[in-house]
Design a binder for these strands. Structure first.
Lengths: 343, 343
DNA sequence: TGACGATCTGAACACGTGAACAAGAATCGG
DNA sequence: CCGATTCTTGTTCACGTGTTCAGATCGTCA
């Protein structure tokens, strides 16, 4: 009698139980569930019935243990209070769940020790890949992922390496559309509020902004540019600084929606009407932009497409782990709402 | 030679490898890692050194498989686009990670078939408990969790049952503080925008609002009450409806921050100044309320405390799975910002 | 009829872990 | 100095899975 020793499990059923009921071996049950190998239709039907009858729920830990795959993908986010990330997470999760996978979430500053801890968590759980939503980070922190051959996808880093792909956002077209839109409205003095000084993503967007201005035949004026921090406070004080200018811009583009929110708040406090006195353009296309008075015109990225590209990139890295991952590009488009109007 | 058959794993190390290097058995390694049982300091040191030297990363799937525990807690959220939930998630995750646990996320309408699917996912991954952020749902959907003896915590359902606890939010004090605050500012006609018709949480908050009014000696006027949908659109149209009244309220409380955002947007569009012409009170205390012009006065709940209480409830349910879970209460407090002013 | 290929099914195996049990070593009281 | 107790370590076991390999069944064609 080993009943006294057996641990109190809540799950009495396994493939063997199902197999017994269906009169087959557990290997056949596995084949039916996973659709691998050939099984007679009649046999498969018997197995499915047994599964239903027992309410059998498979246990992926067996597979994870034996074969090191978990059907879990890691997602490392810098900040859940920025609505961009939850909205991405939502789409990412939806895409994963559709294929019986799970998300493992880590919200972490990309500074060295914290990121390293998150990476370790991912390795412990044997994730099948990691999406790292950061363009700047300490490379040593992800070294363990590479050495354990875990596929990596970074976002907007615009660098690719062995075992790691990148999904870049094509801000160029978005900022160009915004520039065309503003020029058509009569704007000539267009300012910009960037992200944190020195970060690649910030530079990329500023560059995209500059190029867009030139492409529509407007001059880029360095005096109308401020740096923020990707967050509300940065956008707010940057806008205050722009308002202090003797010759203010008539329109301001920003590096992301949070920055634009901060700018809008500063304008509200200064009793400057948007879009009557100044136009604002955000970047992210987050849903809250639709509500934030007077509705934020924003350069939007399709979260759904981004999720799909991330997963595609992970798969293609996995398929060819020994070579450089692909560099995919997600387009951006201007969504026009209430915060832009005639100059 | 079984080397030809062995699957290509990325993790060559296990407790046995560590044990060999440290000159002990793998059981001792386990004892050192988990701190269970007594180990000579010198031995423990040798083991720790071996772990470090090999870069050993434990594999929880072994434990999950053998003992059915995963160190993973499920979290079922209705909506990630409502900033309340990501902010809670952030705190919940932080609390879990501190104890080597993980979150398993499911964003799901609480309608029957979707919720049932999420529950199944949780069961597959052998979660140690589930936090279900919903007060209303099809009870049959969580039946599998109960029968598998998985601890459950619901939020603001105010019902407890065998194997399930509840963490309720004490809105009463929050709405009372808001009522006191508004009365002191001279408001007498105070309106309310609720959540979706018929939901318990919505009723609870409306009731709390009514009681608060009475407690400060003001009359509750049904004509100043509208129902929303917990989202922006509901708040927006509800406010538009209130504005159409011949005798408008001078202040309006809402069921949550998103509803208040919608109300603020409606007021902005109607060119009605907040708080000069009307005061608005939200409920959630989400960070974005601080930015949303002119800054949203809101009834805030401590996410950190809520996370802690949820985990505490889960543990106490697990410890006594055969009896009703506890009913905990989280306090709420008024955070005063720019959206409330003199009547 | 016999041989052969195609199709389907079963047996065996290892993955890493924590706990139960047992055994050896050390300590202590008498 | 011996028996009893405490402390420390080792041995053994099972958890559920997907895959590999071999065996069984069946139909087909020479």
């Amino acid at each position: 009698m080993n009943t006294t020793k057996a641990p109190q499990h809540q799950f009495a059923q396994n493939m063997k139980t199902v197999a017994r009921l269906a009169g087959v071996s557990h290997a056949t049950v596995s084949r039916v569930i996973n659709g691998t190998g050939l099984v007679l239709p009649a046999t498969a039907e018997r197995v499915r019935k047994a599964i239903e009858q027992l309410g059998f729920i498979p246990n992926p830990s067996g597979t994870t243990l034996r074969y090191g795959r978990s059907k879990v993908f890691g997602l490392i986010l810098p900040d859940l209070t920025n609505p961009f990330y939850p909205e991405f997470l939502l789409n990412f999760e939806r895409a994963l769940v559709a294929t019986e996978h799970e998300v493992m979430l880590a919200t972490t500053q990309v500074s060295s020790p914290e990121l390293a801890r998150s990476v370790r968590r991912m390795l412990m759980r044997r994730v099948d890949g990691v999406v790292l939503m950061a363009s700047e980070f300490d490379t040593r922190s992800i070294e363990p992922l590479l050495s354990h051959r875990v596929p990596i996808v970074t976002i907007d880093r615009r660098i690719t390496q062995k075992g790691a792909a990148d999904v870049a956002i094509d801000f160029e077209t978005g900022y160009l559309q915004a520039a065309i839109h503003l020029k058509k409205l009569g704007h000539r003095r267009i300012g910009f509020i960037g992200g944190s000084e020195g970060l690649v993503t910030s530079k990329v967007r500023l560059k995209a902004f500059q190029t867009a201005l030139e492409d529509v035949g407007l001059n880029y004026d360095e005096k109308l540019t401020r740096m923020g921090d990707y967050r509300v406070t940065g956008g707010r004080s940057a806008m205050q600084s722009l308002l202090a200018l003797r010759k203010r811009p008539t329109a301001v583009m920003t590096v992301n929606d949070l920055t634009a929110f901060g700018a809008l708040r500063a304008l509200h406090d200064a009793k400057i009407s948007v879009p009557d006195e100044i136009s604002i353009v955000g970047c992210d296309g987050s849903l809250l932009g639709e509500v934030f008075p007077p509705g934020l015109t924003s350069i939007a990225v399709s979260f759904e497409e981004m999720s799909r590209k991330c997963l595609g990139a992970l798969h293609s890295v996995k398929a060819n782990i020994e070579s450089k991952g692909p560099l995919l590009v997600v387009p951006s488009t201007l969504v026009i709402r209430g915060s832009t109007g005639p100059a």
